[in-house]
């Protein structure tokens, strides 16, 4: 089992919080695989976006330890911190509105 930290937030203006989850990290499991695991087995309220799962749609961007990555193309690791893209308006949890870039860097830490 590994511990991963996900930034949860109910929406713009709501108080963000970091929540830790224990997940079984399978061989080469992706960040998206971890999000699926949490959604299906631990907390169905986790919000995140996915579509093609093969690096083409570019819809599943998140930040892992502060760096923007496609969750379907990135291998998960013990202790990783997953948050939403910080330069777009937040919808909820890891989902942002890609049509609404923020003018300046968000002040709170999104991982």
């Amino acid at each position: 089992m590994a511990t991963v930290h996900i930034r949860r937030c109910d929406g713009p203006g709501a108080e963000p919080r970091w929540v830790s989850y224990e997940v079984p990290l399978e061989d080469r499991m992706t960040v998206l695989g971890v999000l699926d695991y949490i959604y299906e087995n631990v907390d169905t309220s986790l919000a995140y976006y996915q579509s093609c799962r093969m690096g083409r749609c570019a819809g599943c961007f998140v930040q892992v330890n502060g760096k923007g990555v496609l969750s379907c193309e990135t291998t998960a690791f013990d202790g990783m911190r997953v948050g939403p893209l910080e330069n777009y308006e937040l919808v909820r949890d890891l989902v942002v509105d890609l049509n609404k870039p923020l003018k300046k860097r968000a002040s709170n830490d999104r991982g």
Binding site: D10, Y39, S45, A47, Y48
Partner: peptide
Amino acid sequence: NSQKVYNRE
């Protein structure tokens, strides 16, 4: 779950 916004379930 009772989240109204972007509820996958």
